[in-house]
Protein backbone atom coordinates (compact mmCIF):
# COMPACT_ATOMS: atom_id res chain seq x y z
CA UNK A 1 0.00 0.00 0.00
CA UNK A 2 2.66 2.46 1.13
CA UNK A 3 5.02 1.27 -1.59
CA UNK A 4 2.44 1.90 -4.30
CA UNK A 5 1.71 5.37 -2.89
CA UNK A 6 5.42 6.12 -2.96
CA UNK A 7 5.52 4.84 -6.54
CA UNK A 8 2.70 7.19 -7.53
CA UNK A 9 4.46 10.06 -5.75
CA UNK A 10 7.79 9.61 -7.55
CA UNK A 11 6.17 8.76 -10.89
CA UNK A 12 3.99 11.90 -10.93
CA UNK A 13 6.89 14.19 -10.06
CA UNK A 14 9.61 12.81 -12.32
CA UNK A 15 8.53 10.10 -14.77
CA UNK A 16 5.15 11.51 -15.79
CA UNK A 17 5.97 15.14 -15.02
CA UNK A 18 2.89 17.17 -15.90
CA UNK A 19 4.74 19.71 -17.98
CA UNK A 20 7.44 17.63 -19.64
CA UNK A 21 5.73 14.38 -20.38
CA UNK A 22 1.98 14.88 -20.13
CA UNK A 23 1.87 18.39 -21.67
CA UNK A 24 -0.56 19.76 -19.10
CA UNK A 25 -0.46 23.32 -17.78
CA UNK A 26 1.79 24.67 -20.52
CA UNK A 27 0.06 28.09 -20.64
CA UNK A 28 0.84 29.07 -17.03
CA UNK A 29 4.19 27.33 -17.41
CA UNK A 30 5.41 29.74 -20.09
CA UNK A 31 3.26 32.63 -18.84
CA UNK A 32 4.26 32.84 -15.16
CA UNK A 33 7.87 31.64 -15.39
CA UNK A 34 9.47 35.04 -15.97
CA UNK A 35 10.11 35.78 -12.27
CA UNK A 36 11.15 33.36 -9.55
CA UNK A 37 8.86 34.89 -6.89
CA UNK A 38 5.72 34.65 -8.97
CA UNK A 39 6.68 31.13 -10.08
CA UNK A 40 6.86 29.99 -6.45
CA UNK A 41 3.53 31.70 -5.62
CA UNK A 42 1.82 30.11 -8.59
CA UNK A 43 3.34 26.73 -7.76
CA UNK A 44 2.06 26.79 -4.18
CA UNK A 45 -1.43 27.77 -5.34
CA UNK A 46 -1.42 24.96 -7.92
CA UNK A 47 -0.29 22.32 -5.40
CA UNK A 48 -3.06 23.35 -3.00
CA UNK A 49 -5.84 23.48 -5.60
CA UNK A 50 -4.78 20.26 -7.33
CA UNK A 51 -4.72 18.30 -4.05
CA UNK A 52 -8.12 19.57 -2.97
CA UNK A 53 -9.64 19.24 -6.45
CA UNK A 54 -8.48 15.61 -6.64
CA UNK A 55 -10.26 14.81 -3.40
CA UNK A 56 -13.46 16.66 -4.34
CA UNK A 57 -13.77 15.39 -7.91
CA UNK A 58 -13.18 11.82 -6.72
CA UNK A 59 -16.23 12.15 -4.49
CA UNK A 60 -18.24 13.82 -7.23
CA UNK A 61 -17.38 11.01 -9.64
CA UNK A 62 -18.76 8.41 -7.17
CA UNK A 63 -22.06 10.30 -7.13
CA UNK A 64 -22.14 10.59 -10.93
CA UNK A 65 -21.44 6.88 -11.35
CA UNK A 66 -24.08 5.95 -8.78
CA UNK A 67 -26.77 7.78 -10.73
CA UNK A 68 -25.42 6.59 -14.10
CA UNK A 69 -24.68 10.04 -15.48
CA UNK A 70 -20.93 9.60 -16.01
CA UNK A 71 -21.12 11.51 -19.30
CA UNK A 72 -21.72 14.74 -17.36
CA UNK A 73 -18.19 14.37 -15.96
CA UNK A 74 -16.60 17.18 -17.98
CA UNK A 75 -19.25 19.82 -17.24
CA UNK A 76 -19.58 18.92 -13.56
CA UNK A 77 -15.82 18.75 -12.95
CA UNK A 78 -15.08 22.14 -14.47
CA UNK A 79 -17.93 23.74 -12.55
CA UNK A 80 -16.84 22.14 -9.29
CA UNK A 81 -13.26 23.29 -9.82
CA UNK A 82 -14.33 26.83 -10.75
CA UNK A 83 -16.63 27.06 -7.73
CA UNK A 84 -13.96 25.62 -5.46
CA UNK A 85 -11.33 28.12 -6.63
CA UNK A 86 -13.77 30.98 -6.08
CA UNK A 87 -14.59 29.66 -2.60
CA UNK A 88 -10.92 29.31 -1.64
CA UNK A 89 -10.29 32.84 -2.82
CA UNK A 90 -13.10 34.25 -0.66
CA UNK A 91 -12.10 32.07 2.32
CA UNK A 92 -8.48 33.21 2.22
CA UNK A 93 -9.48 36.83 1.77
CA UNK A 94 -11.54 36.72 4.96
CA UNK A 95 -9.44 34.47 7.21
CA UNK A 96 -5.77 34.49 6.14
CA UNK A 97 -5.16 37.84 4.42
CA UNK A 98 -1.38 37.27 4.30
CA UNK A 99 -1.79 34.06 2.31
CA UNK A 100 -4.36 35.77 0.10
CA UNK A 101 -1.87 38.52 -0.65
CA UNK A 102 0.68 35.91 -1.68
CA UNK A 103 -1.58 33.65 -3.76
CA UNK A 104 -4.36 36.09 -4.60
CA UNK A 105 -3.66 36.97 -8.19
CA UNK A 106 -2.77 33.40 -9.16
CA UNK A 107 -5.93 31.75 -7.88
CA UNK A 108 -8.35 32.95 -10.59
CA UNK A 109 -5.86 31.89 -13.27
CA UNK A 110 -5.96 28.34 -11.98
CA UNK A 111 -9.53 27.65 -13.14
CA UNK A 112 -8.34 27.55 -16.73
CA UNK A 113 -5.13 25.69 -15.88
CA UNK A 114 -5.62 22.40 -17.64
CA UNK A 115 -3.39 20.65 -15.10
CA UNK A 116 -6.18 20.83 -12.50
CA UNK A 117 -8.92 19.37 -14.69
CA UNK A 118 -6.26 17.07 -16.13
CA UNK A 119 -5.40 15.48 -12.81
CA UNK A 120 -9.09 15.11 -11.97
CA UNK A 121 -9.75 13.24 -15.22
CA UNK A 122 -6.53 11.21 -14.92
CA UNK A 123 -7.49 10.03 -11.42
CA UNK A 124 -10.66 8.59 -12.93
CA UNK A 125 -9.05 7.03 -16.02
CA UNK A 126 -6.22 5.54 -13.92
CA UNK A 127 -8.87 4.08 -11.54
CA UNK A 128 -7.26 5.56 -8.42
CA UNK A 129 -8.91 5.16 -5.02
CA UNK A 130 -9.47 8.11 -2.68
CA UNK A 131 -6.04 8.14 -0.98
CA UNK A 132 -4.20 7.49 -4.27
CA UNK A 133 -6.12 10.34 -5.93
CA UNK A 134 -5.01 12.79 -3.25
CA UNK A 135 -1.39 11.61 -3.47
CA UNK A 136 -1.45 11.84 -7.26
CA UNK A 137 -2.97 15.33 -7.12
CA UNK A 138 -0.44 16.55 -4.59
CA UNK A 139 2.62 15.06 -6.26
CA UNK A 140 1.54 16.19 -9.74
CA UNK A 141 1.33 19.70 -8.31
CA UNK A 142 4.81 19.32 -6.86
CA UNK A 143 6.08 18.15 -10.26
CA UNK A 144 4.49 21.16 -11.96
CA UNK A 145 6.02 23.52 -9.37
CA UNK A 146 9.43 21.92 -9.78
CA UNK A 147 9.33 22.47 -13.55
CA UNK A 148 8.04 26.03 -13.12
CA UNK A 149 10.67 27.04 -10.56
CA UNK A 150 13.58 25.58 -12.55
CA UNK A 151 12.32 27.37 -15.66
CA UNK A 152 11.95 30.68 -13.82
CA UNK A 153 15.51 30.38 -12.52
CA UNK A 154 16.83 29.83 -16.03
CA UNK A 155 14.75 32.63 -17.54
CA UNK A 156 15.95 35.15 -14.95
CA UNK A 157 19.51 34.43 -16.05
CA UNK A 158 18.45 34.58 -19.68
CA UNK A 159 17.70 38.30 -19.37
CA UNK A 160 21.43 38.95 -19.72
CA UNK A 161 22.11 36.42 -22.46
CA UNK A 162 22.74 37.34 -26.06
CA UNK A 163 19.94 35.53 -27.87
CA UNK A 164 19.23 35.83 -31.62
CA UNK A 165 16.62 38.54 -32.11
CA UNK A 166 13.90 36.30 -33.55
CA UNK A 167 14.15 33.81 -30.70
CA UNK A 168 13.74 36.27 -27.84
CA UNK A 169 10.82 35.74 -25.45
CA UNK A 170 8.51 32.81 -26.15
CA UNK A 171 10.50 30.85 -28.77
CA UNK A 172 13.60 30.47 -26.57
CA UNK A 173 11.40 29.51 -23.62
CA UNK A 174 10.01 26.58 -25.61
CA UNK A 175 13.46 25.51 -26.79
CA UNK A 176 14.70 25.53 -23.17
CA UNK A 177 11.64 23.53 -22.16
CA UNK A 178 12.53 21.04 -24.90
CA UNK A 179 16.06 20.64 -23.53
CA UNK A 180 14.69 20.21 -20.00
CA UNK A 181 12.22 17.63 -21.31
CA UNK A 182 15.17 15.67 -22.71
CA UNK A 183 16.68 15.67 -19.22
CA UNK A 184 13.41 14.49 -17.68
CA UNK A 185 13.20 11.76 -20.33
CA UNK A 186 16.08 10.16 -18.42
CA UNK A 187 13.66 9.29 -15.61
CA UNK A 188 11.50 7.26 -17.97
CA UNK A 189 13.54 4.09 -17.38
CA UNK A 190 12.94 4.07 -13.61
CA UNK A 191 11.26 0.93 -12.26
CA UNK A 192 8.69 1.82 -9.63
CA UNK A 193 6.37 -0.28 -7.47
CA UNK A 194 2.92 -0.21 -9.03
Amino acid sequence: MLASLFGIFIASIFVNNFVFSRFLGICPYVGVSKKLDSAIGMGMAVIFVMTMASAITWGVQQVLVKYGIGYYQTIVFILVIAAFVQLVEMFFQKTIPALYQALGIYLPLITTNCAVLGVAVLNITDKRNFIESIVQGFSSGVGFTLALVIMAGIRERLEFADIPKSLRGMPIAFIIAGLMAIAFLGFAGMKLPR
Partner: peptide, 10 residues
Protein backbone atom coordinates in the same frame (compact mmCIF):
# COMPACT_ATOMS: atom_id res chain seq x y z
CA UNK B 1 8.75 12.10 -27.83
CA UNK B 2 7.77 15.10 -25.64
CA UNK B 3 11.02 17.10 -26.11
CA UNK B 4 10.48 17.15 -29.89
CA UNK B 5 7.18 18.96 -29.42
CA UNK B 6 8.78 21.76 -27.43
CA UNK B 7 11.70 22.09 -29.84
CA UNK B 8 9.51 22.18 -32.95
CA UNK B 9 7.17 24.79 -31.47
CA UNK B 10 10.10 26.95 -30.34
Amino acid sequence: LPPGGFLVVG
